[in-house]
Design a protein around this nucleic acid. Structure first.
Lengths: 210, 210
DNA sequence: ATCTTTGACAAACAAGTGTTCGCTGAAAGA
DNA sequence: TCTTTCAGCGAACACTTGTTTGTCAAAGAT
């Protein structure tokens, strides 16, 4: 069934509201500090009109977070050119590269997600935690594939992935307060750290211990 | 010179204000959502009295953050029983152990720090970033000492420390939404991840590559 | 004992908050 | 063509916000 004019306009307005919220947060402001009237003003609507699109302020925030989760997933989605083909060193570089590109494009998304990961709002937190877990799982699967090709013990794959995400997000947080140019060196650091991690995982699977 | 009655009372009142703010944040609330009047009410003072202790609301927040930084430093301070003595595996366990104890004691401190690390307030952010950098530096020094005893190349010591902090903080964030009991398994994961990291660092220093 | 300092307070201000209600005009369905 | 639906709007409600001003009483200094 085709979309009626009404439906299309409503959808567009809704998008305009979310975009306005994004714009307001661009200066580094937190989601909590956004006011309904402020968002309404920025999107050129009356304050009350927002209630035609979101039942309350929380719903708006959740919609915003949802879209951020979606874009993070899309940006970090692996093309499944497995590590086996390109080798682990290049795989790390690709992973970090994707992440840096995401950060440059959607810096405020990332800020919002990391901020709200520990926000006061339970629904927001759970939504984000679930998303990050999916990210870890996906990466763990990649590690497991590469590992299987080497006949390694697959035990630490999840731990490796979890640590890798922690390292990358930590680097990302540092990058936020740096110029795009200075981020390159931070990205190199992250690569080195991830390589150490991968190397340690391989050795540990081979039975080497500290 | 001895402390006069006036000075003592003022100091105590100031402490009472900060303690009230802490109490209000105990439920997981963010610093941004705290109102001056709310803090005043909680500490049994008139709203205007807070201005006798802090020039404005931002100063109160900064004082709060400062005290959180101090407690984090105190809790994580190494007794300098170097890794050489106890071995890297036990060193990791001790590090994580200290961190978990800190987290159980000062959960809201940690929450506040991680939250405001990406907060909208520049002064807050920089204060926290500096503190975390000190933590990394300190840990890197420990790593370097252990490394020197083995005649290893000291290059990746800072990277190893940075990654280690990222891993531990990542684990800490996950722990926040879990019961104290369930945190033990997360702590074990963190230990494993840190061991992988240390192992990778050692191998890399020996020239082993991916 | 007198004078100065100062922490605590109440009142007030201008502006902000999220949300509800009743209305209007245009699009959708009959 | 007539009727229903509903996105957008202005007014209003009952708060809350950070901050300033002036007053008062207790502590410190002389």
């Amino acid at each position: 069934m085709a979309e009626t004019t009404r439906q299309r306009q409503k959808r567009q307005t809704r998008e305009r509201i979310l975009e306005a919220a994004r714009t307001l947060m661009a200066g580094g402001r937190g989601l909590d500090s956004l006011g309904l009237r402020e968002v309404a003003r920025e999107s050129g609507l009356a304050a009350t009109s927002l209630y035609n699109h979101f039942p309350d302020m929380d719903a708006l925030g959740l919609a915003l977070i949802d879209s951020c989760c979606f874009r993070l997933r899309s940006a970090m989605e692996n093309e499944r050119r497995s590590m086996i083909e390109i080798g682990p060193a290049r795989a790390v570089k690709e992973l970090v590269g994707r992440f840096v590109r995401y950060l440059n494009d959607y810096e405020n998304d990332f800020r919002l997600l990391v901020q709200q990961r520990l926000g006061s709002h339970d629904r927001y937190r759970m939504r984000i935690q679930r998303e990050l877990q999916l990210l870890v799982d996906e990466l763990a699967e990649d590690v497991r594939q590469a590992v299987a090709a080497q006949g390694r013990d697959p035990v630490p794959a999840e731990q490796e992935a979890e640590a890798a995400i922690a390292i990358m997000f930590g680097a990302g947080i540092s990058m936020l307060d740096n110029t795009v140019a200075a981020r390159k060196v931070l990205a190199d650091h992250a690569c080195l750290q991830l390589e150490m991690m991968a190397l340690g995982g391989r050795m540990m699977a081979q039975g080497v211990r500290l």
